[in-house]
């Protein structure tokens, strides 16, 4: 059985990705098996709302080269092939900069004397647990001072189970590698934005990402009432619909600050989230028909 992967991204940070992701998960949890991945491994926060019980922990690792200095002839082929400058050629040996290594393995492949083998280096943790009635909850965290979130996101995603009907991926902010790693294979991407120039600017970057990945998507405008109508005006000329609007209310901020799930405290939105899911399924289907 395959799962429907819905990623929630935004571009601009603080627009309400986790508010939407946790509400959608909570509403669907009452009806279908759901798994939730907090892919914002640099600042995971979905656990504050869904309050999972974590029952297992796994080290997140990347494979980095280890140079056997006795076998190494310091020919420099590994230094040449490394896109990330994680290796430097000294007169008599190769110097490794572990934090620059993306773990691609090219150095090992090009070494003519097999002096390089790969060794795991821990860069964070993966945590697995259960939340609410049946949400399978997966989260990861990057160790402080480690620069690369993408390997953790990839490892977290390798644990996606086909047994859950719906998979919700809460993306990091921005439109960088970590976001692409989260959303690139999603069946649908919800973009949460706010009606401000910053919201619009970063939304456009995310729409650019979706043009590349080819996922269908839609937009939720949060904090309606601040800012202006430029986001809506802009979207009118795109193929991305506005799927939901949430007003700017101090009461919502209060609920979120307490770590409560938005749709629990504003129950009239529960039906809206279920409708949103139906609409997403419909859009995925029509996309498949067009592409199929």
């Amino acid at each position: 059985m395959s799962t429907i992967k819905i990623a929630i991204a935004s571009g601009k940070g603080g627009t309400g990705k986790t508010m939407i992701a946790t509400s959608l998960a909570a509403c669907l949890d009452k009806h279908v098996p759901v798994q939730f991945l907090d892919c914002d491994v640099e600042a995971p926060n979905a656990h504050l709302f869904l309050k999972p019980e974590i029952d297992s922990l796994q080290a997140a690792v990347i494979l980095i080269p280890e140079v056997d200095q006795d076998a190494c002839t310091a020919c420099g082929k590994c230094v040449e092939v490394c896109e990330f400058h994680a290796l430097a050629q000294m007169e008599d040996q190769i110097l490794l900069f572990p934090q620059l290594c993306h773990g691609c393995g090219s150095c090992q492949r090009v070494c003519p004397v097999s002096a390089i083998h790969e060794t795991p280096r821990q860069i964070g943790n993966l945590r697995f647990g259960k939340a609410r009635s049946g949400i399978r909850f997966l989260t990861g965290d990057l160790t402080i001072s480690e620069p690369m979130p993408t390997p953790i996101i990839r490892q977290l995603k390798s644990h996606i189970s086909g047994k859950s009907m719906v998979t919700i991926l809460d993306s990091p902010p921005g439109a960088s590698c970590a976001v692409v790693a989260t959303v690139h294979d999603a069946d649908f991407v919800i973009l949460v934005t706010e009606p401000t120039p910053f919201g619009l600017h970063d939304l456009k970057q995310m729409l650019g990402v979706l043009e590349q990945t080819g996922s269908p998507g839609g937009v939720i405008i949060n904090r309606v009432g601040i800012g202006d109508v430029r986001v809506e005006d802009y979207l009118e000329h795109t193929s991305y619909p506005v799927m939901m609007k949430i007003p700017y209310l101090a009461e919502i901020a209060v609920v979120l600050a307490k770590g409560e799930v938005f749709s629990d405290k504003f129950p009239k939105y529960q039906a809206e989230f279920l409708d949103l899911f139906q609409e997403i399924k419909r859009m995925i289907k029509s996309e498949q028909q067009v592409c199929g």
């Binding site: 230094v79 990330f84 400058h85 994680a86 430097a88 050629q89 000294m90 900069f97 620059l100």
Partner: peptide
């Protein structure tokens, strides 16, 4: 040339100096 690298510019520039 290291100026355009997204990361590892310090190592690349050092390699040049070396």
């Amino acid at each position: 040339d290291a100026v355009k690298e997204s990361s590892g510019a310090g190592v690349a520039a050092s390699q040049f100096i070396i």
